[in-house]
Nucleic acid binder design. Structure first.
Lengths: 334, 334
DNA sequence: GCAGCATTTGCACGCGCTTGCAAAAAAGCG
DNA sequence: CGCTTTTTTGCAAGCGCGTGCAAATGCTGC
């Protein structure tokens, strides 16, 4: 559609009887314009339906106002919620979100970051996957800010926001033991992301420290169906576990459904279940799942606050949140 | 961050020993460049980490490649899924999605569309709310394409994608009657969007046509909690309904949970429940909900295909899908 | 009325890119 | 080899905007 129907500052200037710079200044906060000129410009702009071209403005200012959100499996409850919080915070800060879908394939995140560079995004927020170091360096060198959420990377430059997964996992062990459970299990997906593995190691480590053995099972992607499969595996054993910590709520929902409907187990009487994320469904009464709440709003606020910050990078770019344990009825003795 | 660290076509040209136009043409599909020149340009670009500035390109071409997705409550399962499908299709078509959150407040969608105009989005896709006519006209006049999903508006110009809600609702009545139900109820939110109202009217109309009375209850936003409240209202009546059609799956989940856990009803023996959307949770075995599948992927494909279409607008801009009835165990006799 | 100052305005340039046009190079052909 | 035809290349203009600079304007106080 190579037409040029958008009204430009030039036309507004002509109609208002002022110079084009006056129009420009009217829409630039803090610029010097007399009230009278501003009034006439605004009036003309209104009448003509003028809107500042942010593409051109971005070109001049070297600041597009665009922030890239790089996500895979964005329709899962936790991700969707994080995206919501992020876009909301970005809008509040006068930025706008560009959303890019990635998949499991290698280089998918790199491709997304290249897109971010092409659109001269002021920043990129990576919620899934790990980009190649060379690409992140390219972004940083280009003055683009980078936020890594739960990526557990050690490179300097990006803001790294992480949860204390291992510590949280340890608290689950304590809860299970208090509930009188002795045969612990951990249900994980095969995705192997740093967060998931930290939960696994934290859980296993804490259990070992208390002298309790742990059954660990891993299967498939991090979703409901995998939770069911994991239940199949863990609940058909001779010595059935009496408490299972699922690496995410989605896994836990699948696990609980299989445990109840297929194995006729009563939760929490015969089996305690805990999850992670506190997705909306965890609060639904069919699950009423004890879980850890990811502070998505605080994460989003922190990320956006950091990336709109004019100042040079602060000393440490790493933030660590301690997730809240949300007690519900899937674990005895809350 | 008013630095200028990005490498420009000029620099690539110098390094490759060619003119700036040659660089430009190398990255413009279909432009005339000799293989040798292209090779040298690509090599230099690679070495320098050059990426075409899409802001500037959009300025020249009058085509930004940006498509705006305007959504409210984007973390609900149905919306999140639609966003996923849309971004995916857009990426496949070489476009990029800009995501804008709206809320219930008046003018929220208008604000979003203004943002779309400022970034010179090639198109806007509206998944929630209704913009003011003056704004949509402004968008269209500016050559921006518009897609309205389930908005049921009658104005010409935008592509309007709708579901046959009323017809689907009629099929539910038939199903309920076949299942031997006689006391029908409809559980709706108070949002009052065209889709929701069409489902209500379709259901009530079809039931009336079969000589069956229908209890209709409306409450709150379209979410799980409202479903619970609606169950409170509808299940405490003297003559308790034996079949309820919930306007969305989310309402249905809340309704079912309350019916089971609070009223100790067995589904589908004592109560048949049907929903709409076929969100992921509908397939979870705790619900196993009979519902209508929104063809999100087809909707997304249709929308994107239309908006990347170079041609002048086709005669009719309205597409209507017939949702598939997904039979599960929440209704007897599937 | 005028010097002295602060504020506002217009001019002109440049951000990084695409593209029409005409010149230059390459290719085809008798 | 010279000529025509095709392809490739460079030049320069311009997309819509922000902004430094100098000229113009408005104010103040004498």
């Amino acid at each position: 559609m190579p037409q040029k129907p958008f009204v430009s500052a030039q036309e507004v200037a002509e109609r208002a009887g002022v110079s084009r710079s006056a129009v420009s200044r009217t829409f630039t906060p803090g610029a010097s314009v007399s009230p009278e000129t501003r009034r006439r410009v605004v009036e003309a702009a209104e009448a003509l339906g003028y809107h500042v071209n942010h593409l051109a403005r971005g070109l001049m200012r070297n600041e597009s106002g665009i922030v890239c959100l790089i996500v895979s499996e964005m329709s899962t409850p936790y991700r969707a919620n994080l995206i919501r919080a992020m876009t909301q915070q970005l809008q509040n800060a006068g930025k706008v979100a560009m959303l890019i879908n990635t998949d499991r394939s290698d280089g998918s995140v790199d491709l997304a970051l290249r897109q971010a560079i092409r659109y001269r995004a002021d920043a990129s927020i990576i919620l899934s996957g790990m980009p190649d170091r060379s690409i992140t360096q390219l972004c940083l060198k280009n003055g683009q800010r980078l936020v890594l959420i739960n990526r557990d990377d050690d490179q300097q430059g990006p803001l790294r926001i992480n949860l204390d997964d291992a510590e949280a996992a340890g608290r689950v062990v304590t809860a299970f033991v208090r509930a009188g459970c002795r045969r612990l299990a951990f249900a994980n997906s095969q995705a192997g992301t740093p967060s998931l593995m930290a939960r696994e190691h934290g859980f296993v480590g804490a259990a070992k420290a208390m002298g309790l053995p742990v059954l660990v099972e891993r299967h498939g992607p991090t979703n409901y169906e995998s939770g069911r499969v994991l239940a199949q595996r863990l609940l058909t054993l001779g010595e059935r576990p009496d408490a299972v910590f699922c690496a995410t709520d989605l896994l836990a929902c699948g696990f609980m459904d299989a445990a109840r409907h297929q194995f006729r187990l009563s939760i929490p009487d015969q089996l305690c279940v805990a999850g992670f994320d506190d997705i909306e469904q965890a609060a639904w009464s069919s699950y009423d799942l004890t879980t850890f709440a990811q502070p998505v709003d605080r994460i989003a606020r922190e990320a956006v606050a950091w990336l709109v910050n004019e100042r040079e990078e602060p000393a440490d770019h790493s933030v660590r949140f301690r997730p809240d344990l949300v007690w519900r009825s899937s674990v005895r003795g809350g």
